[in-house]
């Protein structure tokens, strides 16, 4: 698939996955890939703090938009902020501070489950409507929370029968269930538990939220290498190649090779299993041996992302 085509499938892409699978890294890499294709990208961080700005070597994000890289902007959109924002824009500006100081805001938010989530999604919807960017990437809350986050508008419809909040929920459901406007990109790792949880999340999102799923991103795949795990073979190759190898060196090389071969086999088993249980295309991003995620690493992953998209 052409990169431009992939990036314009829907304006909003929600990136979701279990904690520790590298959701934020994936968001940063996809943003970079899309920006390279000439699109303007806005990343929306809904949990406040994440490694996102660090990945671009920039200071922490704020409610105001900041530039992370050419073509890539980002901002936070935390539930608390969204709630105050909403009250202010609904004629409650004067009392919103008092509401939050007295804890009344917490009481209200508790009375209406998912209200804060709705407000966050409502804000995403207005960013989409205003065409705030060609591509809006939402770095969603970690897995379990992502489901309740995306289910919040339906829950709210049950709890609230009238008023602007209900209208907000209806609008958000419209956005979420329109694949030409919004899709979810699920992220996992090639390991058993993350794969299982991804499959469960995928079915829940399709069945209960009715949201379209984009390709699955499998992050942290060891780049495949064809290696010898027998120290004897390695020593023979060394002789043929004209170098001396001590027995210990041969052992170290063989053990490292055996470890990688085993991991490669495991990840093959897991990606196959994922493919069988969830017939969606996969984009595989490499495990990074060299360094923690920074701008250079995001560049490497963006390359892999582009290859993955073009191979779809």
């Amino acid at each position: 698939m052409e990169l431009e085509q992939f990036c314009s499938t829907s304006r909003v892409l929600i990136v979701a996955g279990k904690g520790g699978v590298g959701k934020t890294t994936v968001t940063a890499s996809l943003a970079t890939t899309a920006a390279r294709a000439g699109l303007s990208v806005l990343i929306v961080e809904v949990e406040g703090k994440s490694g996102l700005s660090q990945a671009f070597a920039k200071p922490d994000l704020d409610y105001e938009e900041t530039d992370l890289a050419p073509g890539v902007r980002a901002r936070t959109l935390t539930p608390d902020h969204a709630l105050v924002d909403y009250l202010e824009s609904h004629g409650l500006k004067r009392i919103s501070k008092r509401l939050s100081n007295t804890g009344t805001l917490d009481v209200i938010a508790t009375a209406v489950p998912g209200m804060k989530d709705i407000l966050v999604l409502g804000k995403v919807k207005s960013l989409e409507r205003d065409r705030a960017a060609d591509l809006i990437l939402v770095d969603a809350p970690a897995a379990g929370h992502a489901i309740s986050f995306l289910l919040s508008p339906r829950g709210l419809l049950d709890a609230v029968s009238v008023g602007p909040i209900r209208k907000q929920a209806t609008d958000v459901i419209e956005l979420l269930s329109d694949p030409s406007r919004c899709q979810v990109l699920l992220v996992t790792m090639p390991e058993e538990t993350p794969v299982n949880e991804l499959v469960d999340t995928a079915f829940t999102l399709e069945d209960r939220v009715g949201i379209a799923l984009g390709p699955i991103v499998v992050n942290g795949c060891y780049p495949e290498m064809d290696l010898d795990t027998d120290p004897g073979e390695i020593t023979r190759d060394a002789e043929a190649a004209g170098v001396f190898l001590s027995a210990r060196e041969a052992q170290d090389l063989a053990r490292a090779a055996a470890f990688r071969v085993e991991r490669q086999e495991l990840q093959r088993v897991q990606t196959d299993r994922l493919e069988q249980r969830l017939p969606l295309p996969q984009i595989r991003l490499p495990f990074l041996f060299s360094d923690d995620v920074g701008p250079a690493e995001i560049g490497v992953l963006a390359d892999a992302f582009q290859d993955g998209i073009e191979a779809l």
Binding site: M225, I234, A240, A241, G242, A257, F259, R260, F289
Partner: peptide, 28 residues
Amino acid sequence: HLPGGLREGEAKAAAVRLAKQYENLADF
């Protein structure tokens, strides 16, 4: 810089294989 890398045939093939082994160990 494996000497075999500059040669032909089996020496070259062995050097290519060995280089990969080194790269893998270096990764870890």
